[in-house]
Amino acid sequence: MSRRLRFVALGDSLTEGVGDPVGDGWRGWAALLAGGLAPDGGSVEFHNLAVSGAQTCDVLERQLPVALALRPDIASVMVGVNDTLRCTFDLHAVAARLDRVYAAFAEQGVVLLTACLPDPGAMLGLPGLLAHPLARRQQAVNSVVHALSERHGAVHLHAAEEAWVADRSMWSADRLHPGERGHRVLAVRFHALLAAEGHARGAPPSLEPETSAPTRAASLWWLATAGTGWVARRCTDLLPQLLALSAHELRHRARGTSARLDLRASSAVVSALASLTTADRPDPA
């Protein structure tokens, strides 16, 4: 008897399933996708290692060793947004960690799933001077993810398109995580990519939600209650630097040199990718 297909999911709250509640916990896109990977009559062994708040260092140091020990057939790695929300953000470090994680799965012959993700500043509706620095960070991370996904042969999903961000029904009340509809869309899109390459042989997940989308009132209630705590926790770490970045943005706008900031961000991506070499990758095992 052949062993069951094994799918391991790594990442942060997005993959943990936040925004798609089932019972006393979260379900999410990865769990929805798992059900459609094996043909009818087959079964999938699914392990969700994702943890809310995880950064690339957490995936590399804590989640990756556990995932490799499970010897998965398919693994997903979706992380990086939390890195952009920290004052310690370092694109070179993010690129190096992701490169090691992707390479570790590639060396085991694992089918790797990755995705580019929306900008959190845009999702929260932050003012331009605050949103633009975060947008540049997320765009830089997405560029790195895209390049490394191609380098390591990953199945890559572009999930940062405007249509995805603009459709309010796709998102939960917190404005940061997909709601049930959004999680289902992610699962269906990943399934289509995997099926095209012969890696998903079961029926795709349904797009039909089991619950209604959050109302505007629910979103406002979240911002007035739980949202204030989220902002307070992030402000302690990020706000001082974000204010400095915003002041820097304002000075460049006043001088008409905002294009320089975009150029610097692009140069940082090129530099981060150029600094990666095979010799720099220690054996993760």
Rank of each mutant, 00 (worst) to 15 (best):
R3K: 11
L5P: 00
R6V: 01
A9H: 02
A9E: 03
G11A: 00
G11R: 03
L14G: 04
T15P: 02
G17S: 03
D20F: 02
G23M: 04
D24F: 05
G25W: 12
W26F: 11
R27G: 08
A30T: 07
A30F: 05
A31S: 12
L32W: 07
A34I: 00
A34D: 03
G36K: 06
L37E: 02
L37D: 03
G42V: 04
S43L: 13
V44W: 05
E45W: 07
E45R: 11
A50L: 04
V51L: 10
V59A: 01
R62V: 09
R62P: 03
L64C: 02
P65E: 01
A69D: 13
L70P: 07
I74P: 03
G80L: 00
N82I: 08
T88D: 14
F89L: 11
F89K: 07
F89H: 08
A93P: 04
A96M: 14
A96T: 15
A96G: 13
L98F: 11
L98A: 02
F105G: 06
F105M: 06
A106Q: 13
A106M: 06
C116R: 15
L117W: 06
P120A: 02
M123P: 01
L124C: 04
G128K: 10
Q138R: 14
Q139T: 14
A140M: 10
V145W: 08
A147F: 07
S149H: 01
L157M: 03
H158W: 12
H158R: 15
A160M: 13
A163I: 11
W164C: 12
V165W: 01
D167T: 12
M170E: 09
M170I: 14
A173G: 10
R181M: 04
L186E: 09
H191T: 06
A192Q: 07
A196S: 10
H199Y: 12
A200L: 05
A200E: 06
A200W: 01
P204I: 05
S212W: 00
A213Y: 02
T215G: 07
S219Q: 15
L220C: 13
W221Q: 14
W221M: 13
T225I: 10
G227Q: 03
T228P: 10
G229W: 03
C235Q: 13
L239Q: 07
L239W: 09
L239E: 03
A247L: 14
H248T: 13
H252E: 09
R255N: 07
G256N: 02
R260W: 08
R260Y: 06
L261P: 08
D262P: 07
L263I: 11
L263H: 15
R264F: 01
A265R: 07
A272L: 08
A272M: 02
A279P: 09
P282I: 11
